[in-house]
Design a protein around this nucleic acid. Sequence first.
DNA 1: CAATTTCAATAACGTATGTTATTCACTCTC
DNA 2: GAGAGTGAATAACATACGTTATTGAAATTG
Lengths: 245, 245
Amino acid sequence: MSPLVRKLEQFVRLSSTDRAYLTRAASERLRKFGPRVDIVREGERPKDVQLVVAGWACRYKQLEDGRRQVVSIFLPGDSCDLNVFILREMDHSIGSITDVTVADLSREFFEEISAGYPRIVTALWWESLVDAAIQREWTLNLGQRTALERMAHLLCELFFRLRLAGLTNGESCDFPLTQADLADASGLSKVHVNRTLQELRSANLIVLKGKTLVVPDLRRLMDAGLFNSNYLHMEREGRQLDATE
Amino acid sequence: MSPLVRKLEQFVRLSSTDRAYLTRAASERLRKFGPRVDIVREGERPKDVQLVVAGWACRYKQLEDGRRQVVSIFLPGDSCDLNVFILREMDHSIGSITDVTVADLSREFFEEISAGYPRIVTALWWESLVDAAIQREWTLNLGQRTALERMAHLLCELFFRLRLAGLTNGESCDFPLTQADLADASGLSKVHVNRTLQELRSANLIVLKGKTLVVPDLRRLMDAGLFNSNYLHMEREGRQLDATE
DNA sequence: CAATTTCAATAACGTATGTTATTCACTCTC
DNA sequence: GAGAGTGAATAACATACGTTATTGAAATTG
């Protein structure tokens, strides 16, 4: 099952027709990118919504003098917002981290699901609201948490989201972010990211080597990061747009 | 003209029927709050979308030990997202800053506009995308900008948004945020906010006294905050969902 | 209109994090 | 399989910002 379907199914019960439709949409019109390249640049006007089918990518913004902030991380199954159908131009860039495969979802795709796949619509609504919640949590993370808490929180979030998409193996997962990436995402310097990771390591909160992250005791890492998963809204909805109450 | 209508009209040409409908929706089911009280609390499940008709409010999140981050500021005409119809519970709180009047928008309101007011739908879409863009910009602000840049940027954003809603008088506007509020919103300490404001004052970038802000030279304040307004997407759309291309 | 509380200003001092630089291990490439 | 480049580790040092505390003015309240 694809990461997208797996993720959405956590919230909305999809029919097999829904699943088949999503799976088809995510396998047509594919584009591949190497690592560390721009997929969309600030100022551009892409025609389609981009769904990350495989690999890691990120949204980032840059100041004129080069300072760079990663504002969100795309894991397989994540898509950029509906931006492209309404706004005139991108206010940020999207760049690949690893090799990435992107599926382009056209306006027609969204018109079709609006007309005939209400559960998919609800699921995508849910996804976009969770995206917004994540962005708020990042604001809290950068504004209030110390370096150690911040890093622990970021790692927790990624671990939870990977698990939701079916991309963890027990306590471990692929982890292609470099320390420079973590610095850009956390607002810390590279050197301090290094220090912070070592602190997490020596507290046995993480094992991070090569491109693999192991979290031996997720509960403890969550405590270290003051991590509360409620903002990920990982419960199947109690009521939905088309539910009768 | 109400701040909401005025704001939305910047992007979507509304018919007089649209305007009348919005104005009516924003004048029924009103609730009033005093300053510094919670309108909705984290964990609750409000039934309606809250539209701020008058006054200033904010979204905030709090850590267990009391550290508090304001993650967004609601000006008149702003509304919280559609959260309430899809997600199980609030992942943040909404609190008043001044006296606030809120209009409750029911699910029926959204069903009606979906059925009969496509331009309002587009306008609200636009609004929610701009909200997301603002949240990303705040992430950049907290992650990369220095205290001075950060404060200048925040003031610029508020000034632009107030102007869009028709709430400025030339170079000045009401400004009810205390230094403690600015601290919570910028991730700085109160003391450092004070220092930073004085720096902005002595550079003649702002006049801030009582509850009034004057920006004598917006261009210079923008430069100081590395402020680029593109993320506010303040241009009337070139194409919309129902446009033919 | 006194009593309280809130907000702003300022000072002295502490520290978490940034900066610059060097070295070492890997990996990729020709 | 030497050379080049990237990512990680470490050190020495610098600083932007936080903390705690005090004071005065202004707003709010009984």
